[in-house]
Design a binder for these strands. Structure first.
Lengths: 131, 131
DNA sequence: GTGGATGCAAACCATTTGCACGCCA
DNA sequence: TGGCGTGCAAATGGTTTGCATCCAC
């Protein structure tokens, strides 16, 4: 964890370690809000959480995604990519296998864009909420 | 346009017509901001634009999408679905053909969700910005 | 010791909402 | 005419920022 920061030219401060540790121990992406709740408030303040998340994202340590619920979610970069979100209760479940990647080359040719990534958010009703 | 409103149980007011007409004459989704700029301000105020957009979305006349730039974009429901966004200048270009739909059935089986839709946003650098 | 990192509180900005007035059915 | 629709301005809520202080190096 400490190495991860230093490798990327960032100081290994207590606050940054705390944020990374909480994210590491969660397999699912967390919103800033959720993170602030799980964090030791003695070690990091709310505004620092935002500043740290933004730095870690710039350093490509974290991936930031804006969901349709209006909140930003953060996750360590190599974690799972896509999720389906329950429109009723907000539950999220990972999608295994990404159907987009194979299409990126063709899209690049059709549009002239250099494709750098994609955001995919499946929406639905989870089994618990279908009743 | 007037019929479209009445069919959906909404009064055909000048303000709603104006919003729908501006959206109709644009093939690309518009943000509330862009809409407010294009609209006749004598006919609709800013806050009413938001209220109208929200009603039209509830009535399933408009589709609302939150892009990664943090803005909501609105479009008449049958319009094009997916776009690639330039991370540098913000230009958007439609993607022909949606690679997701064929996978929705399988995802439903794997997750137990009833799949109701998806948001896909491709990200890249447009040809003008690649220099 | 010194410059980057943090805490606090105030600023931001898109969007939402309360309330009084105005217009459509 | 009655009530939905609208305008204005103030509130909201997640996120950002200015500035003084603190700590990692």
């Amino acid at each position: 964890m400490e190495e991860l920061l230093i490798e990327n030219g960032l100081r290994a401060t207590k606050a940054r370690m705390e944020v990374l540790n909480v994210l590491k121990s969660n397999s699912m992406p967390l919103s800033a809000d959720e993170l602030i709740l799980k964090i030791n408030r003695e070690v990091v303040s709310g505004s620092s959480v935002y500043r740290i998340l933004s730095e870690l994202e710039k350093a490509s340590i974290l991936k930031k995604t804006l969901r349709q619920n209006g909140l930003h979610y953060y996750t360590i970069y190599d974690s799972h990519e896509h999720y389906i979100v329950c429109s009723n209760c907000g539950k999220i479940v990972p999608i295994t296998h990404c159907p987009i990647s194979p299409y990126e080359e063709g899209i690049a040719q059709n549009t002239g864009f250099k494709v750098t990534g994609h955001i995919l958010e499946l929406q639905g009703i989870c089994s618990d909420c279908q009743g």
